[in-house]
Lab assay of single mutants.
Amino acid sequence: LVRYRTISKIPQITLNFVDLKGDPFLASPTSDREIIAPKIKERTHNVTEKVTQVLSLGADVLPEYKLQAPRIHRWTILHYSPFKAVWDWLILLLVIYTAVFTPYSAAFLLKETEEGPPATECGYACQPLAVVDLIVDIMFIVDILINFRTTYVNANEEVVSHPGRIAVHYFKGWFLIDMVAAIPFDLLIFGSGSEELIGLLKTARLLRLVRVARKLDRYSEYGAAVLFLLMCTFALIAHWLACIWYAIGNMEQPHMDSRIGWLHNLGDQIGKPYNSSGLGGPSIKDKYVTALYFTFSSLTSVGFGNVSPNTNSEKIFSICVMLIGSLMYASIFGNVSAIIQRLYSGTARYHTQMLRVREFIRFHQIPNPLRQRLEEYFQHAWSYTNGIDMNAVLKGFPECLQADICLHLNRSLLQHCKPFRGATKGCLRALAMKFKTTHAPPGDTLVHAGDLLTALYFISRGSIEILRGDVVVAILGKNDIFGEPLNLYARPGKSNGDVRALTYCDLHKIHR
């Protein structure tokens, strides 16, 4: 019993810090008490220290592992850092350059016999395009090294910054494609005289377009951006097909006994025919423009016929181009109408809503002055909100995010209106959640004399007048207030005048 009563005193000691020596009952000389009392004092002292730490809000209350900052290894790049964003855009520009100039170089340097010394005699450094290609190869190699040090988000939505895990993730992902696209074939085969082989191998750079397509997928929600990307894709495919079309004609031209190829026909049409040795002929500019003209006309199913396939190889390629053109029509131009419709969806919704308003007016036989006010209010409210119901949009977000959005939407009023000066951010967040926005066209009466005042109004834009009878008592403008002081009276009061809008007004109100 003594032991039980001794232990039962522990909660009292913990909360009230009572010393055991003052209790005459606990001072009985028993061996059990002498053993338990020192333990009680020690526990009391420890609990006292913990309570003191909690009340003082000291940093040592938290466990040590929670006080440590997340460790980022040296030379690790955050995937959302500004440097990584700028670097990704730079790589994107280099990939676009590669997609345009690599097929052009591979096709127009394929057994090209233009006048001038061969590239091997001039030297590697004197070729501007080769120098640019070398810079692109170096940048792609540097990009691989950067990807080995860039964080990523795993399946659990955690940012991984450990170098080993980053390397394994990159090896399992895009490393092989990036490595093949970054191989400097110019340096590996330079001086061997195989410019045709170098041009063909350099087309491996186009593998990076797969990554670019995935990154550009984030802009699919913007109709104008999608339309622009589709047109660029169409032009890029036409450019690639033009390079292939020229390569076919250029390879067949020296081996044909009869002059029936499209390059021969082009030379005869523009007065620059090929001679018996295969030299001469149109310039590279004429060849490229004509090839691009043929691919565009074939892809769009126009086909004027002034550039036509004559050999079997050219006919087979033309059939493939027609098939590609039909697929592009289905996948690209078939979506253009939907994209344009999405661009004008706001206008369509406006006309639909206006039609419903006019049908309501016609069905209920609203008189002319009231009908005009109804239409003007709808037009003004639509121009202010673009038909978007803010309350319906915010309803799907958590309250903390709703408060931040409301604070942002009402920031101008909260910053410049005098009653809100000096208020804490928590108070402003709470008030912003209570605001209701209303609009009024010129001549609209917001409050009639004798109406119950259940709200306090803040003028965000425009001006109003307060009338008693036919006498203008006051004219209020931006950041002015009218209405009933909230919670100042037990019952809502009545208006002693009319409140009429002089201009288009936007008002925020808080109800009782």
Rank of each mutant, 00 (worst) to 15 (best):
A99H: 01
N368E: 08
G281E: 01
A235I: 11
I248T: 01
S297N: 01
A125D: 01
L266W: 01
K434N: 04
G280Y: 01
A224S: 05
P309N: 01
D268Y: 05
G426P: 08
L266Q: 01
F190P: 14
F333G: 03
C126Y: 01
I189F: 14
M231S: 01
K425T: 15
P273C: 01
Y293P: 01
S331P: 03
V136M: 03
L292Q: 01
D217R: 10
E314C: 01
L394A: 04
D444W: 08
D178N: 01
L355R: 10
I248M: 01
G271Q: 03
L279M: 08
L370K: 01
E221N: 06
H416G: 11
G280D: 03
E158A: 13
D404I: 01
G303V: 01
T347R: 10
L93V: 12
G346N: 13
S258G: 14
Y170F: 01
H448C: 07
G443Q: 03
R349I: 07
C400M: 09
I72H: 14
L206M: 08
D268P: 01
F234P: 01
I361A: 11
A119I: 07
A348R: 11
T437E: 05
L374S: 03
L110G: 13
R208N: 08
K172T: 08
I366L: 05
G267T: 04
G173W: 03
A392G: 08
K202G: 01
T113R: 08
M251I: 08
I96A: 07
V307A: 01
C232H: 01
P309F: 01
F175M: 05
E157P: 03
A107W: 01
P103Q: 01
G116M: 08
G191T: 09
L227H: 01
Y219Q: 08
K425C: 04
L216F: 09
F333T: 03
C126F: 01
A392L: 08
R214G: 08
A430M: 12
R342K: 04
S161K: 05
G249M: 01
I96K: 01
L299S: 01
G249A: 03
L206I: 05
L134T: 03
S105Y: 07
E115L: 14
A225G: 13
A338K: 08
R421E: 12
L94P: 07
P118K: 15
I166F: 01
Q68T: 14
L323K: 01
G325V: 01
T102M: 08
T120H: 04
P70G: 14
D186N: 12
K425L: 09
Y222F: 15
A130W: 11
F101K: 07
L207D: 01
A449N: 08
F304C: 10
P163D: 01
E121G: 15
